[in-house]
Design a protein around this nucleic acid. Sequence first.
DNA 1: ACATGATCATGC
DNA 2: GCATGATCATGT
Length: 221
Amino acid sequence: MRPKNEQELLARAESIAGLTLSELASQWHIAIPPNLKRDKGWVGMLIETVLGATAGSKAEQDFNHLGIELKTIPINSKGYPLETTFVSLAPLTQNSGIIWENSHVRHKLAKVLWIPVEGMRQIPLAERRIGCPILWQPSADQEQRLRLDWEELMDYIVLGKIEEINAHLGEVLQLRPKGANSRSLTKGIDKNGQIINTLPLGFYLRKQFTSEILQQFMQNG
DNA sequence: ACATGATCATGC
DNA sequence: GCATGATCATGT
């Protein structure tokens, strides 16, 4: 069921806009959990299935043949994002030679199909509605801001300042833990060049940035 | 009220 | 542990 071109993917995404999650899940005979506490990726997996992405794939993008990454994003009643958006894990070792142009962050964000979904916890998961899809590519200005943040954050990693990193750094992109829990460890490099155990970190888009993307494509005010 | 740091599920 | 998909929930 994988879409053969961009138009087909977009048409499929537009065809599910307005449906509730229970309507879509029942059409596909997919069980719906009571909430997302133990199924945080459920909405994303459902939309992947429906749109024909290869679930569980290790591919760089969800639709590699189209050069498109799929992201669901939870929004409030005003269309504002309720959560940050995970992009990719940060390379804490073996990162020499990685520059913005060949980074995973740039590749994944080169073209994104955003699917807004109502995310307010007061709305039962089954009753949350799917919004209109947004096919986005970063503007020159947006890519520049992403690049500057990425370069600043990568400098911390490469220069052995990994223990100084926190989520306050970065204007539109931030680094936060991305693991099973606070005991999850990976290898990193400290200020003396020694290998240390440290929390895995991921690049996340701040809500202010994704809000800008959603607003950019909003119709009728 | 909200962002940061922590956490959940799954496959290999 | 890493990569996929993310949201939870506590501290400030």
